[in-house]
Simulated scan of single mutants.
Amino acid sequence: MADNEFGYTKWGMDWVRLAEPIRQTRPDPLLPRARSVARNGGVQITIEGRVVRAAIHRGNEASVTHLEVAPLPRAAITAIGELIPDTAVLTDEMHQAVVAAGVTLAPVLAGTDCSCKARSARCLHVLAVFYDMARRVDENPRLALEVQGYFRGAQDDSPVAAEVPRWVPINALDPADYFGELSPTPA
């Protein structure tokens, strides 16, 4: 397994499985191109909390891809904290121990978006981001937990994680609060 280009650790393989699910019954023609884009530095990723934003350059085309990773449940955070007291160095054996305890470490996507014309949740650009994230997680397995909100959730004292809504209804906004105090215009 060490000769795999992407996902040579169990932590990174979780990201590869997003691109190459085991239940897939036929070859996906986009996967070789997505691996090529990720391999050749065509993906520039910025990670902010549980949101992964990527600018992808392929030839003369450019796309912006947005992935939102669902947070780990409180029970999973607690179980991981008990099984791995020190997360400074994460090994494949630690991954196996957590999975054997019944905790799912694989990332779950809360949403994906891409600016390309394919308008698909599994476009070339999203797949390239999966591979690039697998490479990054292989290099730094802590990123696998960080992007799922483990470290933020482990510091939180509340037993239930508060979910921040992705969208705010327009009628929930107060114009005075949103725009600040509107001063009257002189007549």
Rank of each mutant, 00 (worst) to 15 (best):
D3R: 13
D3P: 01
E5N: 02
K10D: 09
W11N: 02
G12Q: 08
D14L: 02
V16Q: 01
R17Q: 12
E20C: 07
P21E: 07
T25G: 11
P29E: 06
P29S: 14
L30Q: 11
P32Q: 13
A34W: 00
R35M: 12
V37W: 01
V37R: 01
R39H: 14
N40I: 02
G41W: 12
G42N: 00
Q44H: 10
I45Y: 04
T46G: 09
I47C: 04
E48I: 08
V51Q: 09
R53E: 14
A54D: 04
A54I: 01
A54W: 02
A55S: 06
R58P: 03
G59W: 08
N60W: 14
N60F: 07
N60S: 15
E61T: 14
A62C: 06
A62Q: 14
S63T: 11
V64H: 15
V64F: 12
H66F: 15
L72M: 15
L72P: 03
A76E: 09
I77L: 03
T78C: 06
T78V: 15
I80M: 05
G81T: 04
L83E: 08
I84E: 04
D86V: 13
D86R: 13
D86L: 07
T87R: 03
A88I: 07
V89L: 14
V89A: 15
T91W: 08
M94N: 14
A97M: 07
V98Q: 03
V98M: 06
V98G: 00
V99K: 04
V99A: 11
A100Y: 03
A101V: 05
A101S: 15
T104A: 11
T104Y: 02
L105G: 01
A110N: 10
G111T: 08
S115C: 05
A118C: 09
R119C: 06
A121T: 13
R122Q: 08
R122S: 12
L124A: 01
L127H: 09
L127Y: 06
V129I: 05
V129F: 03
V129E: 01
V129G: 02
Y131V: 00
D132H: 14
D132W: 02
D132Q: 15
M133Q: 02
R135M: 06
V137T: 07
D138P: 05
D138S: 06
D138V: 05
P141E: 05
A144L: 05
L145A: 00
L145P: 00
Q148R: 11
G149R: 01
G149S: 08
Y150L: 00
R152Y: 04
A154T: 00
A154K: 04
A154M: 01
Q155I: 00
D156V: 02
S158R: 12
P159T: 10
P159Y: 05
A162E: 15
A162M: 01
E163Q: 13
E163P: 00
P165I: 07
R166Q: 13
R166N: 10
W167V: 10
I170A: 12
I170E: 12
L173W: 13
A176H: 13
G180M: 11
L182H: 12
